[in-house]
Design a protein around this nucleic acid. Sequence first.
DNA 1: CGTCTTTGACCTGCGC
DNA 2: GCGCAGGTCAAAGACG
Length: 165
Amino acid sequence: MADSNPPKPPDSPESDFTNQNPFDEFSEFFIFEDDDEEPDHSMMSSEQVPNQQVSQSIEVSGFGGSTSNPFEGGSSSSRDISGSGERDVKDRFAFKTKSEVEILEDGYKWRKYGKKMVKNSPNPRNYYKCSVEGCPVKKRVERDKDDPSFVITTYEGVHTHPSVS
DNA sequence: CGTCTTTGACCTGCGC
DNA sequence: GCGCAGGTCAAAGACG
Ligand SMILES: [Zn+2]
């Protein structure tokens, strides 16, 4: 109750983006399944400098439109490396987006199934899953620690069905 | 009426 | 063995 939208008018993410500069407000930071992680040995010592890495220029046009999806067609089922003891083929795709709302419509229906607090950020992490039966796709949404205006959306899995009608 | 949201509890893996 | 962290499920309620 009293959800109270953020201190900001309902800025429909699916109608303003076309008018904004993808380089200024729509920073796409692709975070593939990297092995190395932040070697954070000591914690809470002195805040580390924010890693403001906003770069990369991927073709992202009809995002939040309705049917266009940058996911399908790019990196997907690459399970041809089953012979070698390679890492799992779990498709993990992180997306950093500048938005005040976490519910970015990407053309799919998601059902929230959990909320957790991350220690690294004073913000909670939301867990979503595709409502479509048979779709093992999961989505994780979390706010940035240094930039609460940024939202990190992590997609896991591949949709096995076209976008919603 | 059906769908989705919300919160807590619960499970597992790991570290020490 | 316990605690912590992260992740998941389930019941109830809200809501259209
Ligand atoms: Zn799906």
